[in-house]
Simulated assay, not measured.
Amino acid sequence: MSTRTIARRAALAGATLTAALALAACGGGHSAGSGHDMPGTGAPASASPGASASFGDADVMFAQMMIPHHQQAVRMSELAESRAGDAEVRKLATQIKAAQAPEIATMTGWLTAWGRPVPSGGPSGGHLPGMDHGMPGMMSDADMAKLAAASGREFDRQFLTMMIAHHEGAITMAKQEIAGGANADAEAMAQQIVTAQRSEIDTMRKILGRL
């Protein structure tokens, strides 16, 4: 798959996400004790102090979409451990996994505390039934299979190209949370994602340029 194709898919998915979040924002905000909790979600998991504070539909959507997005990035990074040929690619993959795995746990805690469904895991990332709006930068099952079948320099180039598009998608989602979120912790994480992943994109482009 070409870089242009991946970038075009990410852009189209980003436009879909923008519309979905705009609709979600109209749903207003909620608080932990507002009577909007959903049954059958289990007891609250460990979460940050601000997780149970005021939150809105945009915060819920941010967490529900960023969890599977991060899960896929972690899976891609795990593939790099045994398939990457370049030492800097392996180091970057380790860095991405170390940053995003704890964020998955934190966002899972938020959703549980808010009484909202948590996406289930999967080979290419988790999902929720009925979540039919696109996640920008998300790789397809075919993309993941192609990446898993590669090794050495071929893997490195595919990994970097896909992860750049993946990161750009995450930044799009994070910016939507910054603009429309109501929960301070979620907005802080979104800003952290923007800052960290912009820096990683710069690094990946430099590596890709020398391969």
Score class of each variant (00 low, 15 high):
145 A>S: 14
171 I>T: 10
18 T>D: 13
17 L>G: 02
5 T>E: 15
93 A>E: 11
179 A>K: 14
203 T>V: 15
74 V>P: 01
74 V>R: 06
201 I>S: 09
128 L>W: 05
133 H>G: 02
36 H>I: 01
101 A>H: 06
82 S>W: 04
41 T>Y: 04
92 L>Q: 02
93 A>T: 13
80 A>Y: 03
200 E>T: 05
48 S>K: 09
175 K>A: 04
145 A>E: 14
158 Q>I: 01
139 M>V: 08
66 M>Q: 09
16 T>F: 09
28 G>S: 02
22 A>P: 03
119 P>H: 11
62 F>C: 01
120 S>C: 03
80 A>L: 10
187 E>S: 13
121 G>H: 08
112 T>Q: 02
131 M>H: 12
59 D>K: 00
123 P>G: 13
142 A>Q: 15
195 T>P: 00
197 Q>S: 08
35 G>N: 12
166 H>F: 11
173 M>Q: 07
125 G>R: 01
170 A>N: 03
92 L>W: 01
69 H>K: 06
184 A>N: 10
39 P>Y: 11
24 A>Q: 11
68 P>S: 00
1 M>Q: 06
27 G>N: 12
169 G>T: 07
64 Q>T: 06
211 L>Y: 08
58 A>Q: 07
46 S>W: 11
206 K>L: 14
61 M>S: 08
47 A>G: 05
123 P>M: 12
14 G>H: 03
146 K>L: 11
176 Q>D: 13
177 E>H: 04
